[in-house]
Design a protein around this nucleic acid. Structure first.
Length: 222
DNA sequence: CTTTCGATATTCT
DNA sequence: GAATATCGAAAGC
């Protein structure tokens, strides 16, 4: 855990999410470099699980910064978020895609023998499976201090910039001409206005092969 | 290239 | 009963 990581996760997800690009999440024999994320912002965001208040399923999304929030998607897949922003605001960044940089054989044993390296953690359901995330065991654990199964580590370049100018200015630099370029656009699979251009909260590393294909929701507006 | 469909837990109407 | 922060395979253009 570093002060820079704490400072980044003190910000709500729309600010913190791009800062997770290039960071690594490590645990259960696998390390993934994050290449694609989506931000969700609690009560003011109609696409957020926290929009209609706390339930037994989403309660860890309301936790302290650095809490891991895992949920079952479409009854089948396990997806992983990193909580950021003030405790109780249900702000989180969904990890949508990444490159397996260590433990490729472990990831492949979970995903299947015929899956290509770049596809092992491409897409939120696949990423959760590659990491071996389990709802009852991992939901609500910390990714900061090693008390849980996973540890999040910022990219060295961003960590230095956050230490120098603070998280908000460092993210501004990233979005405004960093290398590699960061793309921003509507969130994948989200319905209504929350899936439109009014919420351009999907962020990805442009040109990276481990970024998932964008699929528009039937009901997305914009 | 695009669209459709099945698998199915949780939540909302 | 309907919708959903998905995925992969299959079918149609």
């Amino acid at each position: 855990m570093t002060d820079a990581l704490m400072a980044l996760l003190a910000e709500p997800a729309p600010v913190a999410a791009p800062g997770l690009l290039g960071a690594t999440i490590s645990g259960k024999g696998v390390t993934v470099r994050i290449t694609e994320v989506e931000a969700y912002l609690g009560a003011v965001d109609p696409g957020s699980h926290g929009h209609r208040g706390m339930t037994d399923r989403n309660r860890h999304l309301f936790g302290a910064p650095g809490t891991l929030y895992a949920y079952r998607s479409y009854g089948i897949h396990t997806c992983v978020n990193v909580v950021s922003g003030p405790e109780g605001t249900s702000s989180g960044s969904l990890l949508r895609g990444g490159e397996v940089v260590a433990g490729i054989e472990v990831a492949r044993s979970r995903r299947g023998p015929s899956v290509a390296d770049v596809a092992l953690a491409r897409g939120p359901g696949n990423l959760g499976l590659a990491l071996g995330a389990v709802l009852g065991e991992d939901d609500g654990s910390s990714v900061l201090d090693g008390s849980g199964p996973y540890v999040l580590t910022l990219g060295a370049g961003l960590e230095a910039r956050i230490a120098a100018v603070g998280p908000v200015a460092a993210i501004d630099e990233l979005l405004d001409g960093g290398a590699p370029a960061i793309g921003r656009g509507p969130r994948t699979g989200v319905g209504g206005v929350a899936g439109g251009a009014a919420f351009p909260w999907r962020s990805w590393l442009v040109g990276d092969p481990t970024v998932s294909a964008y699929r528009r929701h039937k009901g997305a507006v914009g």
